[in-house]
Amino acid sequence: MTLLAVERIKLFTTRSPWWCTLIALVLTIGFGALMAGTSEENIAPLTIAATQFGYTFGLVVVMVMAALAITTEYRFSTIRATFLAVPNRPTALIAKATVVAVLAAIVGEIAAFGSWGIARLMKPNVDLAINTAYEWRAVAGVGLVYGISAVVAVAVGVLLRHSAGAIAVLLIWNQLVEPLVQLIPKVGDDIHKWLPFNVANKLITGNPDPSTRDVLQGPPPSDAVLGPWPALAAFAGFAVVLFGIALVVANRRDA
């Protein structure tokens, strides 16, 4: 608990997490409003999935926030001050990842319910009640994916130690590599089904109810083979393994 308090103080006594939180919320909720505002009953009806269209943009910002939380420590050598105060490096880094993941999850939930809420306000006549398991996953699942993605970002930050490098790797991987892998002939689609962010996306977009979702509305559904919850477990497992590697490396490396 002590270490969680330490990391909480560190995170909230600098400005970047506040800015990243604000940008993530404005982006996602803004896209929710955009989807609601441009929807038309017959051509592009507003659905719960459609209100979550902006979640990947918020995800990118949240990962930048998480990566910065650790890489700025390396940049300003406060990581050394941290390891002097807490020589058990794995516990110090686990505390950091936990605090960052919790913040990311909260941002995700506010972003998701905010996007859904603003759509309801703008289109009170459209039925946007959250009834089915799919609808709950599509909204509440965003926070879970953000939280786990934050752990991935912290792990990459620990391994690379440079803000620019870590952010570049995360963005290129999330925004370019995963979508573009599908273009590889023959094997591309099979690889894509198992890439971590696509797997995570399965929780939010996977197994839609035929009655509530037209495939063309909202974020494109994930083609991951796992079911939505096993997919989330797989994504969490991936994050844990990557973070475990980062802990081993940080523990062995000269600080």
């Binding site: 560190k10 006594t13 600098t14 400005r15 700025t72 420590e73 300003f76 050598s77 406060t78 050394r80 001050a81 002097l84």
Partner: peptide
């Protein structure tokens, strides 16, 4: 220990 006085976050 004081190894380097610049081991602080400039915006903190």
């Amino acid at each position: 220990a004081l190894l380097d006085a610049k081991w602080v976050h400039p915006n903190r």
